[in-house]
Amino acid sequence: MTDRPSGSEFGDGDPVIRDKRRIDPETGEPRESSESAEGTSAEVPDDVSSLTGPSAQEALLTEALSERTADLQRLQAEYVNYKRRVDRDREASRELVIGSVLTELLGILDDIGRAREAGELEGAFKAVAESLERVTEKLGLQKFGEPGDAFDPRIHEALLHNYSDEVDGPTATMVMQPGYRHGERILRAARVAVSEPTEQLPDTKAESTTDDDAEKSAE
């Protein structure tokens, strides 16, 4: 079919027939339809064309994979922090329980120490006492407090106080009861007698003179 000419031969209201065959009947070659191609590309929105094709699907899969990986890493970090907190709390509870048990045994250890000093730690009693001491040491109990130690109010409890020319500073010259610690925790402070240098002794002569002057002024 061929296009019908327009003009005077046909009226303005007559229909126009166009040849839409894709194969040219004269040459036998396919015809290029630029108008239809342009119309088709123009009718496809940019956002729709951008969402089609394997590259777009690959981008969506990559984004989803990144999100899932980030979620997995966040969950893993939360689990590690939770496990550390649980382990820390469990260890703290364990140390607290052991410290409480050892505190109850300090009186027995004091009796063993007094018996050893008196020479009465003999026979079966000696074996039992040494076994108990080994168990407490294995649990982390540490004994402290020796004559000559520098006085430290954080670990010493002063029961007696005097002055001496044989010390350069506050010194525990006598240990009345040893102290015990478990790790960083002080279960019992060492009870000691503290001596300070004689030069720190208050000036009693000056004090007595001041008292005499005050009495004379009152008279």
Rank of each mutant, 00 (worst) to 15 (best):
R134S: 15
E78H: 04
R114E: 00
S41L: 12
R116S: 06
N81E: 13
G145C: 11
A127G: 14
N81H: 02
D71L: 12
K126W: 00
G148N: 03
V16S: 07
Q76D: 12
K20C: 03
R31A: 04
S34Q: 06
R116N: 06
S93G: 10
E104C: 04
R90Q: 06
R31F: 01
G99Q: 08
A118F: 03
S93N: 14
K83V: 13
T52D: 12
D46C: 01
S36L: 13
E122Q: 06
T62Q: 11
V135D: 03
V97W: 12
E32C: 02
L75E: 11
P147A: 04
D47K: 06
S100K: 15
G113L: 02
Q76M: 14
D87N: 12
D47Q: 03
A56H: 10
V135Q: 08
Y82F: 07
T62Y: 02
T62M: 09
E133L: 10
L139R: 07
S36W: 10
Q73Y: 06
S36G: 11
S131I: 00
E117D: 09
G99D: 07
R88F: 10
R68P: 05
V80M: 05
K126V: 00
S50H: 06
A115T: 05
I108R: 04
S41V: 07
A64V: 02
G123M: 11
A92L: 12
V80H: 01
L96P: 00
S41W: 07
E146G: 00
A59L: 09
L141V: 15
A70I: 08
S33L: 08
V128I: 03
E95A: 13
V80E: 11
E122R: 07
V80L: 12
G99W: 02
L102T: 09
E26S: 06
I112L: 01
R74S: 08
T52F: 01
L132R: 00
R134N: 11
K143V: 13
Q73T: 12
S36H: 03
E122L: 09
S34A: 08
Q57F: 08
R90W: 04
G145T: 07
A77S: 12
L60A: 13
S41T: 07
Y79T: 10
E58A: 15
E26A: 13
S36I: 13
L72V: 02
E122P: 00
K126M: 05
G28H: 05
F125A: 09
L106F: 13
S55D: 15
T136R: 05
D47V: 07
L102Q: 07
E91K: 14
A64W: 01
E58N: 08
L141H: 15
S100V: 05
D19K: 00
G140E: 15
L75I: 03
R74Y: 06
L109D: 02
D71M: 14
P30I: 04
P45V: 00
A64M: 12
E133K: 09
P25A: 00
V86T: 13
Q73K: 13
L60W: 02
D19L: 02
G140P: 11
R94E: 11
D110Y: 02
K20F: 10
Q142K: 14
R18E: 07
Q76A: 15
L132V: 14
